[in-house]
């Protein structure tokens, strides 16, 4: 605690509370507004006259007979086949998380336990790799992938996302592994385990919190990615984010921008749930890197 609450002057309390309230409003309002608006018709949510229509929903009532309508969702999910991109997203994100964690726990463990100098250089290299803009890497993939005929498939995007994810995953898991006492795997090895057995039987069972936290961030990276999925996946294999981007090109002209709004809300909902359930892990994950790195 920074300050003792009892001795805090009132104006300061008022000021800081107002500030926090203002920030919460800034952070939350766009989402609440968009979720609300996604159940309206375009003439309400994008009203040329007054945004008050979006709250009353008068046009929505006029057009559909009720103050709320699922037309946007129907249009996106059914008419525009948003559903298949949801399936693709599930496949891609789950695979990326599983493979990233498998590679990352092995590598992070090795980096945390080896005392040699090259671990330092590998971590530095990972830092440089971490800084590479994804789109520059994508421009390196396209031509070779076309030539090898592996462009457009889900597995290609998955392995690419795993690789792009590795530097971050390695850093994070490395710092989690450092927090597990060395004594643990060493006693396992003296007790009769090989290095890998010690890793699997003794270290991983106590690493779950770290693995889950890192998994969340792998998930977020794969889920939120636009550069890789937009450029490396063919039309039928598209995941949600590039699908939404493609809505902008086609739907906006047709006047069905509400499809995009509904798709955006659909894509954000899982993230809401994620933050709700894993808030603690996300916070600890963000700080784990900071405290150790």
């Amino acid at each position: 605690m920074i300050v003792n609450k009892r001795r805090r002057p009132l104006p300061l309390t008022v000021l800081s509370t107002t500030f926090v309230l203002l920030w919460v409003l800034m952070a939350a309002f766009p989402f609440i507004w968009t979720v609300w608006g996604s159940f309206k018709v375009e003439q309400d949510f994008f009203s040329r006259d007054s945004w008050w229509f979006a709250i009353e929903g008068s046009r929505t009532i006029a057009q559909t007979g009720s103050a709320f309508t699922g037309d946007g969702y129907y249009g996106a999910w059914v008419l525009r086949d948003f559903f298949s991109s949801v399936v693709n997203t599930v496949i891609v994100t789950l695979s990326v998380v599983v493979v990233s964690l498998t590679f990352g726990t092995l590598g992070g463990y090795a980096l945390a336990r080896s005392g040699y100098r090259y671990t330092f250089w590998l971590l530095m290299l990972a830092l440089v790799f971490r800084a590479m803009p994804h789109i520059t890497l994508v421009s390196g993939y396209l031509l070779p992938f076309f030539e090898m005929n592996i462009w457009g498939h889900l597995p290609t995007a998955i392995i690419v996302l795993v690789a792009i994810n590795q530097p971050f995953t390695l850093w994070m898991l490395h710092s989690f592994f450092l927090s597990i006492p060395k004594d643990l795997d060493e006693s396992a090895m003296v007790d009769g385990c090989s290095r890998f057995q010690a890793f699997r039987l003794v270290v991983i069972p106590v690493m779950w919190p770290g693995v889950i936290t890192t998994g969340l961030f792998s998930f977020l990276l794969a889920y939120n990615d636009f550069a890789v999925t937009a450029m490396l996946l063919s039309q039928p294999n598209q995941t949600m984010v590039p699908k939404i981007a493609s809505f902008l090109g086609t739907i906006q002209q047709e006047g069905n921008v509400m499809f995009a709004v509904a798709a955006v809300v659909s894509a954000t909902a899982p993230l809401f749930v994620l933050v709700m359930f894993f808030q603690r892990q996300i916070v600890s994950g963000l700080t784990a890197g900071a405290v150790k790195g």
Partner: peptide, 17 residues
Amino acid sequence: EPKDRDISMVFQSYGLY
């Protein structure tokens, strides 16, 4: 390897699982 040396060891911070 440690596992092949047929020894057992008690660690300073015990190394319990």
